[in-house]
């Protein structure tokens, strides 16, 4: 039972990273109808900015992270302006492939920075653990869950109450009508990419603050947010959060129990468990748990 609860807690904290990334995917999808495969690179770049500000320049963790978020957001906006704005109105598939190209380029550049060692950010008292009834969690993970919660609530309030949030919702609903109402759709696209870049930077910072730090292979983590958004439904904000947490928890549960229960699935099955879960969900619900069904008009 303790194993089970521990797995849930571990999965919840790892799932928070997926949820942050998944929110980024959903932001971009809702605004531009494109799935950005550049998210892994944005996560790495954002995390590396935070690393540079904290570990190299010696700024405090939270200041470094704030600067990292700003830089991540700026990178997101630059990508949108240079690679995606010229392609406005082209098929979404083309745009998605362009983001793959962007991802490759950004990742090669950041790999040059990373080199062979892993880049680890020191979280203040990060390895101290809080223990309740045999289940323990590190300070760093508590910080992650807290930051994720704040980010999700802030985004929800932003969309619900601010004028810009309203403009973004209108653009998501119908671009031409939004344009006719005087909304600057281009600015909305840029903002969506900035938010996605910022969220990815938060995720990257906490990946770097984890035990393994950021290595050349860390970008794989961000791809696990893809099953999360598919499970939650591509255009649903709460779906992204729930999907991300679900993927994290399923991964942790498989890591804990699969070696004993189903060893024939092979070592490290937990790494691909999110994709297996995605197949199951899609067979039952083709538009995810919370996604809007596409309506066919002839």
């Amino acid at each position: 039972m303790t194993d089970f609860l521990q797995a849930i807690v571990n999965g919840f904290s790892q799932g928070s990273i997926y949820a942050l990334l998944a929110l980024g995917y959903v932001m971009i999808y809702k605004a531009t109808r494109v799935i950005s495969f550049a998210q892994p690179a944005l996560m790495i770049v954002g995390g590396l900015f935070s690393y540079h500000f904290t570990s190299e320049l010696g700024l405090p963790f939270w200041v470094g992270m704030a600067l990292g978020i700003v830089c991540g957001a700026v990178v997101g906006m630059i990508v949108e302006r240079l690679a995606l704005r010229p392609m406005l109105g082209k098929p979404v598939f083309t745009l998605a492939i362009i983001t793959i190209g962007v991802d490759i380029v950004l990742r090669i550049i950041s790999n040059r920075y990373i080199g062979v060692q892993s880049r680890i950010i020191d979280y203040p008292n990060g390895s101290d653990r809080v223990s309740v009834g045999g289940v323990s969690i590190s300070q760093q993970r508590i910080g992650l869950i807290a930051v994720t919660t704040v980010a999700v609530i802030a985004l929800a309030l932003f969309f619900r109450y601010s004028r810009t949030g309203l403009a973004m919702r209108a653009t998501a609903l119908d671009q031409e009508t939004a344009l006719a109402q005087g909304i600057r759709v281009g600015a909305v696209f840029a903002l969506a990419w900035a938010i996605a870049g910022g969220l990815a930077a938060i995720a990257g910072t906490f990946v770097a603050a984890g035990n393994a730090g950021i290595e050349q292979t860390s970008w794989i983590i961000a791809l696990k947010a893809l099953p999360a958004i598919i499970i939650g439904g591509l255009d649903s904000v709460q779906g992204a959060v729930i999907g991300g947490l679900a993927v994290g928890i399923v991964e942790a549960l498989t890591a804990t129990f699969q070696p004993d229960v189903a060893p024939w699935l092979g070592a490290n099955f937990s790494l691909v468990a999110p994709y297996a879960l995605m197949f199951v969900v899609l067979l039952v619900r083709p538009y995810g748990l919370f996604g809007t069904k596409e309506v066919e008009r002839v």
Binding site: I35, V92, A96, L226, P227, I230, F279
Partner: peptide, 12 residues
């Protein structure tokens, strides 16, 4: 599935 959903599933 259609479009990008399919892309992600084949990625899986």
């Amino acid at each position: 599935l259609r479009g990008l959903y399919l892309a992600i599933v084949t990625l899986g």
